[in-house]
Every structure is written in C-alpha cells, then in structure tokens.
Design a protein around this nucleic acid. Structure first.
Lengths: 156, 156
DNA sequence: GAATTTAGTCACTGATCTTGACGATCATGA
DNA sequence: TCATGATCGTCAAGATCAGTGACTAAATTC
C-alpha cells in the first residue's frame, strides 16, 4: 500500500489535529458571519477568544494566545476599527492599556462561546458525554508540553 | 470568574486543537532537527507528510494537504534545494512531473513517521489503547465537515 | 478533429509573523 | 531614597507565507 493511501486510511495525530482545528475554525467563523459578524478572521481569535468582559492587557492576550505582542497590537488596531474593542488606560499602571470590548465585542464573545459550545454539544451527543469528556482530557494532554524537556508549558 | 480564567481552567475545543497541533509540530520538528534534519519547517509537511516513496504529483500533494499548487511548487523548489526531493517527468503524462524523494527524503519520511508514532504510543500508553483509539476516532469526526452543508469534506 | 480540461510554472499581490529598539513607567534591592 | 533592572506597548523594519489568474503544452472528452 502506498504511503499516501495508508495516511488517507489512517491519518496520524498531526494531520487529524490540523483538520480538527480548521473544521472548528471554519464552522465558527462561517456561523459568526451568518449572525452579524462577517468581518472577523481566525487570527482575530488571538484577542477575541481570550479577552475578559471587563478588558485585558495586551501582554496578557499575547501570553494566553501565544501570539507576539506586536501582532496583538495590530489586531487590536483592526478590532478597534471594526468596532469590537477600544483601548483604555489601565488605572493600576500608567504604562499599560486595557483592551476593553464594546457592546459589539461582547455580543461576538457571547456568540462565539455559544457556537463552540454547540459544536462541542453536537460531538458529545454523537459520542456520548463520558466519551467526549475523555476525549477532551486526552486532547488537553496532547497539547501540553512533553514532560522530559527544559521548556515547560510554553505556547507558540 | 473572569472569562480568561474560565478558559484557562476549561479550554474549549478550538483552543485545545490549536495547542495539540502546535505541540505535535514542535516536538516533531525539534526531534527531526536532533536526528539530522534541522532545515525543515512545518510548512514543508505539506509535501513530506504526504509524498509516496515512489513519488507523487504536485497536484496530488496539493489536494491531500489542502495547500495551493503554487505553494506546493515553491515548497518542492525548497526541498529540492535542501536535497529531500527531485523532480522527474511523469512517464504517463508529459504535462506532469513526479516529485520523488531522495535518500535523504526517504530517511526523513521514515523518521517523521516513527516520531509521530512514538508520540502517539506515549499518549496511548498513558491513556490506554482502547481510550486512545476512541480519542482518534472522535478527533477524526471533529475534523470532518459537519453534515448539513453544501461543501462536503473540503480541507483548507 | 475540435473543444474542454488539466499540469505546473510564471508573475505577481496580499497577508501574516518575527525581531529588536525605544521611552515611559513600575518593581526591586541595597 | 535611589539606582538598577524589568515591563508596557508602540515603532520600524525584515522575513515568511498564502492566494490569484494567466499561460503553454498535453491529455481528455464529445
């Protein structure tokens, strides 16, 4: 059997993870577009997926999402222009800014959390709650850094 | 509880899939670098993860990997320069070329398949074979297009 | 045999990521 | 209290990566 046939019949973990990620992103952003948020793209998730209702610092968003702070800065510019967030001074630290969601931002956050929840509920219904819980625990373990290495828990 | 705290405590499917993909890619390419293949990057996987031992056409690699054929062309240029593949005419079709792995390419293919196999074996050992098999079946389902849509099974 | 489709390359254009420097501000330790 | 080191976010690049349409030769289809 040819290698590509073996891979098609039994894809490996990296290929499956890549497809799973793209399937979830595709459905999420298509459904967001249908629900009034057509301007958002997956890379905006580095901000919108992690931002708190009461606002977050850019450095926190960079750390949580694994994106460089320069990229977060540019994404915040775009999201501000699109009406999703605004920048405010951080009262606790005059160097820092808070990225605060607008009403439109809060709506998007609530909707995207609900959409991902529905995707998960659909898979849980198909597989069974217990099986789905076990699946998520294993997926989380796969995403954690392997133990025998100096760099612990670093996201890209 | 703040949204970012909830997300840290219980990350959703998209975040988990993103981390899983990056964890597997990071370990794979770091281990390949240690084993004599330091010049390869994840985007080369669009060719090296799918190529057959006896060679593949660029259009097949584009279809299997979801990458545009222009990108595959550029990647094949780079991999040829690095000594992993060479282009040969396809005897069955004078328009077509076969991308054929070199000895170095075959070595990398065997090693990367083994490395991903070891990553999977480690997770299977930790979780149990039956649990890991169930995990992969579910991950594959997550990566398949949702049923109620016109675009069936398209990879990005 | 003509029309249509395909293969891969050309030539772009556009998108995204990475890095280091900088000034203002904060935290730390002597 | 002060000097020093660290942090915050922006600036200004440079590097990497993806997407599109056109083109010629070759194959397929009708």
């Amino acid at each position: 059997m040819r290698r590509s046939e073996r891979k098609a019949a039994s894809p490996d973990l990296g290929i499956l993870a890549n497809r799973a990620l793209h399937a979830v992103q595709r459905e999420l952003f298509r459904t967001l577009a249908e629900q009034g948020h057509p301007d958002l793209r997956p890379r905006h998730g580095a901000v919108m997926a992690f931002i708190d209702e009461e606002g977050s610092r850019a450095t926190d968003l960079a750390q949580q999402s694994g994106q460089h702070k320069q990229v977060i800065g540019t994404l915040v510019d775009e999201l501000a222009a699109l009406g999703y967030v605004r920048r405010e001074p951080d009262p606790d630290d005059r160097r820092a800014k808070l990225v605060v969601p607008t009403e439109r931002g809060l709506d998007q956050m609530q909707r995207s959390d609900a959409i991902v929840g529905e995707i998960e509920a659909r898979h849980a219904a198909a597989a069974g709650e217990a099986a789905y819980d076990a699946f998520k625990r294993l997926l989380r373990q796969v995403g954690e850094a392997p133990p025998a290495d100096g760099d612990a828990g670093v996201t890209p």
